[in-house]
């Protein structure tokens, strides 16, 4: 474990050195302003870029190895991703509500239909007076 930690620290320091190398020609003033890059500037910049990238990769690799070691020893628990809720109920909701609405309105529709059928016969049927005849007799 300690060797991986030392490796990670070394890689981070190397990445910082790489960043410094990229900036050095401009920071130290060895690269004239508004002029083409000199050979030293080109060499330092691209070498620094390589060092920074390799340092970053090394640090990530060692950090991942340390994390793996900690998980294997049971010192770190890995959280399982929660399953995201499915969006399907949202589009299905209007269908169920329209079905429920139809079910609620069915008795009213049936009553209206009976009422319309009974408008031609004003006599009472089964002791009940239709709504339309009741209104007409007012």
């Amino acid at each position: 474990m300690i060797r991986k930690f030392i490796g990670a620290v070394t890689a981070v320091l190397a990445a910082l050195a790489g960043l410094w190398l990229m900036l050095a020609p401009f920071a130290l003033g060895t690269q004239p302003a508004n002029a083409d890059w000199t050979d030293p500037t080109t060499a330092e910049f691209f070498t620094g870029l390589g060092v920074a990238v390799i340092g970053l990769a090394g640090a990530s690799a060692f950090a991942a190895a340390i994390h793996e070691d900690l998980v294997a020893r049971g010192l770190v628990t890995v959280r399982e991703r929660k399953a995201e809720p499915e969006p399907e109920p949202a589009p299905a909701a209007p269908q169920t509500s329209s079905a429920e609405l139809a079910a609620l309105l069915a008795p009213l529709v049936e009553a209206l239909r009976e009422d319309l059928n009974h408008t031609a016969r004003p006599n009472r049927q089964n002791g009940s007076v239709t709504l339309v005849t009741a209104e007409e007799n007012r």
């Binding site: 991986k4 990670a8 890689a11 190397a14 390799i54 090394g58």
Partner: peptide, 25 residues
């Protein structure tokens, strides 16, 4: 595997350091 990648990075960094020392000449 990941530690081996890190070791490879250290080796590359060592070689790059040597290159930097030799580059001016």
């Amino acid at each position: 595997m990941k530690a081996k990648l890190g070791v490879s990075a250290l080796v590359l960094l060592f070689l790059t350091g040597l290159w930097l020392v030799a580059a001016p000449f």
